[in-house]
């Protein structure tokens, strides 16, 4: 059973970010079932944690509901993350959520990126803002990322595969990363220290 956590930073109810997130997670489920594996999908609406995220920023620790949400993300086998585009980038809420997660907790995490915006002209937010963020976190980002503009929810644009097709392709990328993946990611926790004498020896060893 693959545990997939979906993070969406859309603010409306329903939001187009949530709609895209659902599309991507349905596509992933379908892809995984082709290879005979099952997935549980948990959806995290950051809107529900907005105040807790702000409290975490000022107090330095997560209130219980947010702590559970963070565990849901760090313990997942894969993430689907979707943000609306605000002022040319991911939303502040989206970034703040990943700011309060330990910067090493997502190392090696397979991640599928999605974004939504009021115009197709912001599509490169995926490559210029979201991909660098997850590269910094040393996550494994799926090569295909999906942007949904308003017209994608209708007829779509000429000469462009429909949103469903792009979602399937992205889901195929992520499913491929999961099927061939190394054993389950260990649950994130504090790494123990090296023994004291090794710590000391490392300082005194000549630098290579």
């Amino acid at each position: 059973m693959t545990k997939v956590t979906v993070v969406t930073a859309g603010l409306g109810v329903p939001s187009s970010s949530r709609m895209l997130a659902d599309l991507l997670s349905d596509a992933l489920k379908a892809e995984l079932s082709l290879s005979g594996s099952d997935a549980t999908i948990d959806v995290l609406e950051l809107r529900d944690h907005a105040v807790d995220i702000a409290h975490h920023l000022v107090s330095g620790f997560a209130p219980p509901a947010l702590a559970a949400a963070i565990r849901n993300v760090t313990d997942a086998d894969a993430l689907i993350v979707v943000s609306p585009v605000f002022s040319g980038s991911y939303s502040g809420l989206f970034k703040s959520f990943f700011d309060v997660i330990d910067s090493t907790a997502l190392e090696g995490m397979p991640v599928l990126l999605g974004a939504t915006g009021g115009s197709a002209r912001h599509a490169l937010v995926l490559e210029h803002a979201m991909r660098p963020l997850f590269s910094y976190l040393r996550a494994r980002v799926a090569p295909t990322a999906v942007y949904a503009a308003p017209q994608d929810w209708g007829a779509g644009a000429d000469n462009e595969p429909a949103l469903e097709q792009r979602s399937r392709r992205a889901a195929r990328d992520l499913a491929g990363m999961l099927v061939g993946r190394s054993p389950a990611r260990p649950s994130y926790q504090i790494e123990p220290s090296a023994p004291f004498e090794d710590l000391l020896a490392r300082i005194q060893a000549p630098t290579p």
């Binding site: 504090i190 220290s193 004291f196 004498e197």
Partner: peptide, 12 residues
């Protein structure tokens, strides 16, 4: 938050 500090305390 630093496990190395716990290690130093334990060693000595």
């Amino acid at each position: 938050r630093t496990p190395e500090v716990a290690e130093i305390a334990a060693y000595f």
